[in-house]
């Protein structure tokens, strides 16, 4: 049995092997598999989706339809640091729009774009569930809460140069 696919490493297959006994069928592993696969390159290429399809044992179209339903699966490459600013009601009431405008200016990109150096991607996010500490944003897997222009500026500066 192959332990690696076209693009997915052994790490993926080892991680999945551990999860298999926790579900009554393999299809239920599609979401965990996509999360795991995305860890490898930060996004899900056509080849990655095919590897996942082969692993699960379904037509690649079925993986594509699932992956494209959820906003957290990146079907296009994203920057090293993915900033997702929540602009939903609670954050919007406390100034998220200004933060978004500021971030666009500071990074010199529009929301939805990636900086030319590939360091930052900026997105608008729906409610993050951090409403009592609004405004909030996600920076990769981390939440940054009680955000204001100063702390946003500091965060971007800090992550501009060195490792994200």
């Amino acid at each position: 049995m192959a332990t690696t696919g076209k693009v997915l490493s052994e790490k993926f297959y080892t991680a999945m092997k551990k999860l298999e006994p926790r579900y009554p069928n393999k299809k239920a592993l599609i979401l965990p598999a996509l999360h795991e696969a995305q860890k490898e390159h930060g996004w899900l290429s056509k080849e990655t989706l095919e590897d996942v399809a082969n692993y699960i044992g379904v037509h690649p179209a079925q993986i594509r339809e699932v992956a494209s339903f959820y906003t957290m699966y990146n079907l296009k490459p994203v920057g090293k640091m993915h900033l997702k600013i929540c602009t939903n009601v609670a954050c919007c009431l406390r100034g998220a729009d200004e933060l978004m405008e500021y971030a666009e200016k500071k990074l010199a990109i529009k929301c939805g774009e990636t900086t030319p150096d590939g360091r930052f991607t900026l997105s608008e996010e729906e409610c993050l569930g951090a409403c009592t500490t609004a405004p909030a944003m996600m920076a990769n897997d981390d939440y940054i809460e009680n955000l204001d222009i100063n702390s946003l500026s500091d965060f971007i500066e800090k992550n501009k140069g060195g490792q994200a």
Binding site: N88, A90, G129
Partner: peptide
């Protein structure tokens, strides 16, 4: 899933 905007108690 706590995703109703405004809600962050389960967290």
């Amino acid at each position: 899933d706590e995703s109703e905007p405004g809600t962050c108690k389960d967290r």
